[in-house]
Design a protein around this nucleic acid. Structure first.
Lengths: 234, 234
DNA sequence: CGAATAGTTGAGGACTATCAAAAGTGGTGG
DNA sequence: CCACCACTTTTGATAGTCCTCAACTATTCG
């Protein structure tokens, strides 16, 4: 989390110390559990220490749309710092280690450390930028491109976080979850993945995804990492 | 803009005075002009005084996706306060009066007035919440529902801003723009609108949209205004 | 008023959804 | 360590929504 925030704003020693000395409780949460529920008030901020999670909303008809995926180091409910009621759910994708920081401690930290506040605000702006890209992904790309784009984004974020490289990584999502993230059905995700595999764009083994030719996958969906705003400090 | 920020955080007299005494230049911009360009650096912040604008991104193939629509009172590039490079475009939907605030003046205001800063941050979080809803809109609703949802959101926002009421308003978008906002084609938007008109869900005259039975339109798309986070102060 | 833009309509086709069932995988308890 | 159960992936057949192309009409703006 520290290293992520360091990519958002320049933090001095005092900022870093304050961040590292935040009080928190560590818990292990099973796969499929809710970290945030729609309509719930925020009491503490959740940091993903290990494991993956996703954010989703449900339509009135009960259809699910995944709107983002979280990787270790992410604060999954920064919104809770200012907004009183969550308008979405956050659920674990795998068994996770979660650090929970009491809200008052976080508010105090934000008041005392302008650069941390800046980093957090920047982080929420980048989240917004990623949402915009997702709107475009589901709105204006076909099935293969949507999946390819998700794979590119995930791979690149893992790489930057030091958790994998873009030539292949473990993807902790079922095809049904991929479908909910791309606005497709699980059946169609399956067929699209098989096509992509036949085309040599991806290699699949269990839940591991290999990307033998990164450029080809990138070109298929027109992935351009500018929107991830990876270098805010430099 | 002041009244909008007042719905985001409690502002005292000094905050309000400072906001109102910000230096700015007023310009008239024609329909279809760019206020922000992808890749451009931010030099000043644009406030929509009158008129409408929209935010969009282009795929590598040149397809356009509109990711949000702005109404009078909106700051169209709050992101520019922290992010150095815009990852999207903002273009006017109608002729607009634009107030441009120099970036340094804004940064100074933010430093000096914690409540204004809080209001702005909250505003960007709400933008994020709206993007999430849009991801769901294009990902998990059919054509009629997507259009209905856009109409509901727009009507409700206009109403809150004191610029119209939900029983009908002037919609400054062409059907092609509606298509780009909903991830459809202009032809299909046209057919869907005609169907909705035949069903008595909307009434159209030129660019004016009437909603004779708000509840029916709301129920069609499952519109739930929670995500607009309209009451952050109370 | 005339050109450009926007809206409308038809026909045909492509992409994606739906339904259903079989095969594979992973986790749990005895 | 195996058996069993739930979940996930795969495959086939069919249907439907939405797209593409194209032409025509209406509206808007200079």
């Amino acid at each position: 989390m520290l290293s992520k925030l360091e990519r958002r704003a320049r933090l001095n020693q005092s900022d870093q110390d304050a961040l590292l000395s935040l009080p928190f409780t560590k818990t292990i949460v099973d796969r499929g559990k809710y970290l945030v529920r729609e309509g719930a008030h925020t009491t503490g901020l959740c940091v993903l220490i290990t494991g993956f999670a996703f954010r989703h909303r449900l339509t009135a008809d009960g259809d699910r749309q995944i709107v983002s995926v979280h990787i270790p180091g992410d604060l999954v409910n920064v919104d809770g710092v200012l907004l009183t009621v969550a308008d979405h759910n956050v659920q674990t994708l795998t068994r996770c280690e979660i650090g929970t920081i009491p809200l008052p401690a976080m508010l105090q930290l934000i008041d005392a450390h302008p650069q941390i506040r800046r980093a957090l605000w920047t982080d929420t702006l980048i989240d917004g930028s990623i949402y915009r890209e997702w709107v475009m992904n589901v709105g204006r790309r076909d099935a293969r491109q949507r999946i390819a784009h998700l794979l590119c984004e995930f791979g690149r974020r893992l790489e930057v976080a030091g958790l994998g490289d873009s030539t292949g990584y473990k993807l902790p999502m079922t095809q049904e979850q991929l479908a909910d993230a791309t606005g497709l059905t699980a059946v169609h995700v399956n067929r699209s993945l098989k096509t992509m595999e036949a085309e040599g764009l991806v290699v699949r083994e269990k839940r591991f995804v290999g990307v033998p030719r990164w450029e080809r996958l990138r070109d298929l969906c027109g992935f351009n990492e500018l929107y991830l705003q990876l270098d805010q400090v430099a």
